[in-house]
Each structure stands twice: as C-alpha cells, then as structure tokens.
C-alpha cells in the first residue's frame, strides 16, 4: 500500500477525531442535564430522563443514526449528513455519560455529605465543593472509556455517507481491490488514536488523585 493511500486515510481520520470530539463534548453537556433530570425530585423529569437513557442505551447506534438521518428531513431540517451524524452520536453518548455521572454521584459516600451538613455547608456548596469533585474523580476512567467507545462507534456514521476514516477505507478498498491492507491500516489508525486517548486519560486520572484511597 502506497503512502499516498495511507495519507488519505490519515486525512479522513481527522474527520473521525473531529466528529468524536464534538459529539462527546455536546454529549457531556447534554448528559449533565439528563443526569440532573434522572436524579431530580420531580417525578416527570425522572421518568423522562430514565426513558431517554434507556432508549439510547437500549438500541443500536446504527439504528439511531439511520432513524435520525431519515427523520430530520421529514421534520423540515435539511442538514448535511455530518450534522445528522453529530446529532445521533451526541444523543447516544449523552445517555451513556448520564448513566456514568449518576453512578459517580451515587458512589459519593453519604458520610462525607453528612459531615459537610454538620459543618454548615449550604446545599449548593456541598454540591460544588464535595459531591461534584468526588463524583468527577470517580467517573474519569469510565468517561475516558466512553470517549474511546464513541471514537470506535464513529465508524458507523459511514453508513449515512460521511466520509470519515472507515468510509474512506471502504471506498479505497473498493477502488484498489486491496481491502486487507486498507482495513488493517484503518484499524491501526483507530488503535493509535485510542492509545493516545487512553494515555491522556491515565495522565488525567493521576492528576486527579488525592493520595491513595
């Protein structure tokens, strides 16, 4: 396989990274809302949040992408397929991240909150100074693996016509009749990106550790 082909793959990988970063970021913002809904005291908010999480975790991303891709134009939103892809990925990862955040918040030991209560912290102060930092620290590893998961899942947007890494590999494989090298090379590029993200995650985890627990 020539360097030229490989370089085309690398170029396409930039879109893969871009799509993933945007979706995971939007997903994170969405997930805080969903998590707030799930943990809220309002029954209807709780139910809505739970349904959201259950649906997007309970269906294949591929089906979600197809549904959104065909649904958007029907409701009058003629957007490029990249945007449809970002919408689908963001919604899906929001559900997973919300569940991760919820797990983090519920693992904060009750005693720590009670201690803060006894020290006279307000509810907001307890959230900001105690619950949030501890929950974030507890969820960093899971959030990083979710980001890696999304990076891999971004390959599915190829079915709605976004020419990212895996679609480029498919197109090139079809035109050059060299699927073996091209898909292996694409896999290698995914692996390298994931290793970088995982390495970054480990650094972050180390940074966020307050002594040994």
């Amino acid at each position: 396989m020539s360097w030229k082909l490989f370089w085309l793959l690398v170029e396409a990988a930039r879109l893969t990274i871009l799509l993933s970063v945007i979706s995971v970021s939007i997903g994170f913002l969405l997930s805080s809302l969903v998590c707030a809904a799930v943990m809220s005291t309002h029954r209807s908010a709780r139910i809505a949040g739970k349904l959201f999480v259950s649906f997007f975790r309970g269906t294949p991303l591929l089906v979600q992408l197809l549904l959104i891709y065909y649904l958007l134009p029907q409701i009058g939103l003629n957007v490029p397929s990249e945007v449809a892809a970002i919408v689908g990925m963001s919604l899906c990862t929001a559900a997973y991240q919300a569940e991760i955040l919820r797990g983090g918040f519920s693992s904060v030991p009750r005693g720590l909150i009670e201690a803060a209560n006894m020290c006279g912290f307000s509810k907001f102060a307890i959230f900001r100074r105690i619950r949030l930092p501890i929950a974030v620290q507890l969820t960093i590893p899971a959030l990083i693996s979710e980001a890696i998961m999304m990076l891999k899942s971004s390959s599915l947007v190829s079915v709605v016509g976004v020419v990212e890494l895996s679609r480029m590999a498919q197109d090139l494989a079809a035109s050059t009749y060299r699927p073996l090298e091209l898909f292996a090379a694409a896999g290698l590029i995914y692996l390298i990106i994931n290793l970088v993200v995982a390495g970054f995650g480990l650094q972050l985890e180390k940074r966020m550790q307050w002594g040994r627990t």
Binding site: K152, L156, A169
Partner: peptide, 10 residues
Amino acid sequence: GTPFLVQIFL
C-alpha cells in the same frame, strides 16, 4: 482498540 465495523470488513 478498533471498531467492530472495521474488524468485520477486514
């Protein structure tokens, strides 16, 4: 470390 889709294609 790689997408299932790519594995299946390969």
